[in-house]
Simulated scan of single mutants.
Amino acid sequence: MGSLRGHFPFFFVVVLVLSSNHILVDAHNDSTTRVELEADFKVIAELAGNTAIPNTDFKSLAKLSLTNAIASCNAIHSHINSLLKISNSYTGRCLTGCSTNYEDAVGLITKSLAALEARDYVEAKALISDALANATKCEDRFQELLQLNSPFILMKAKFGRLCLIGIKHINRLVRKERLITEGCSHTLDKELCKSSVEFFLENKGLSLQGLAKLAVEKTLQDCTKIHNHISVLLKTSSDECLLKKLRSCSGHYQTAIAKIRDSLPALECKRYGDARAWVGAAIDWAETCEGVIAGKSNTKSPLTPLKTDFNRQAALALSVIYKLAGN
């Protein structure tokens, strides 16, 4: 898609920000707010077009490296257990300790993947380092007791490289996220700014039509996720009042899902007015559910966190559709 700098009209950012932030809707026509929104737009466009911020998916690369590190570690552990069957007492003593070391290392790398998914990057790197330390303990044991390298030192080197590559990608991910976070720090909707920039960076190779389709498909996924969560709550909740409201919401989200699905062929046929109307209708149905749950007692909705993600994704989808329509 190339640089996004200077390619988006002001109305694009108004939709991008206001679609998911109802607090700002009343201020839409206020001149001061319009200036602030235009500034937000410039931030998003400049960040997305900033060559200093790579569009590489470092998280996926880190996960791939760590997954391969687990496979490598398991291979070493299996090899150690095979050697234990034919070893003498001294070698067996080393191998027994190494078996424990590599078993622990597998557990640590597995935990690091969970930490990475939770965006706890400090913990992820610490766990990887601990796994590497376990592998080093094994080698140290061979040197101390036998003054020899272990018979799997080359396998250990491969495991170490994979771990270090994982750490390298995590560090790059941290730098990328910091640049985006700092860039979005003065915008009105910081989370929407960050998700928008990340979306554009990750999909620079797509045409605007492709971006719109992907954004709508992700909106559909988020909407379906909420509906599935409602289904779980209907089976697990014992609050009859909440259950009644959730049954209504289940129907509302079924309608929302249908509307988003309808928008995809409309988008394909370049009926952009219909596409954005149906995505907008899905947002309205989600809002209706929130109102149903809140009721007169202003009950806190268990769906709000998921709905916030849905709103942001829907806002992004609408913004790209508006751009496609030439607005």
Rank of each mutant, 00 (worst) to 15 (best):
L4C: 10
L4G: 06
H7Y: 05
P9R: 06
V14G: 07
L16H: 03
L18P: 03
H28P: 00
V35Y: 12
V35P: 01
E46S: 12
N50S: 10
T51N: 05
K59Y: 11
S65I: 06
S65P: 02
T67D: 14
A69T: 00
A75M: 09
H77P: 01
H79A: 14
I80S: 05
N81I: 11
N81H: 10
Y90L: 10
T91G: 14
T91N: 07
T91D: 15
R93A: 13
T96G: 09
C98V: 04
L108I: 06
A114T: 15
A115K: 08
A115D: 08
L116K: 05
D120A: 14
Y121E: 09
V122F: 10
E123S: 15
I128Q: 09
D130K: 10
A135T: 03
D140V: 07
Q143C: 04
E144C: 05
L146N: 03
N149P: 07
M155F: 15
F159P: 01
L162P: 01
L164Y: 10
I167V: 15
K168H: 14
H169C: 08
V174A: 14
I180G: 00
T181M: 08
T187S: 06
D189A: 10
D189F: 11
K190G: 00
C193Y: 01
S195D: 15
S196K: 05
F199S: 04
F199L: 03
F199T: 04
F200D: 02
L206R: 01
L208V: 05
G210S: 03
G210P: 03
L214I: 01
L214T: 01
D222P: 07
T224M: 12
K225S: 13
N228R: 14
I230H: 01
I230M: 06
S231I: 03
V232N: 04
L233K: 02
L234Q: 03
L234W: 02
L242E: 10
K245G: 08
S248E: 13
S250V: 06
G251Q: 08
A256D: 10
I260N: 00
E268R: 05
K270Y: 04
A277S: 13
A277R: 09
A281N: 11
A282L: 07
D284C: 05
E287G: 13
C289F: 14
G291P: 11
S297W: 04
S301K: 02
P305H: 07
F310M: 15
A315R: 02
L316V: 01
S319V: 02
G326H: 08
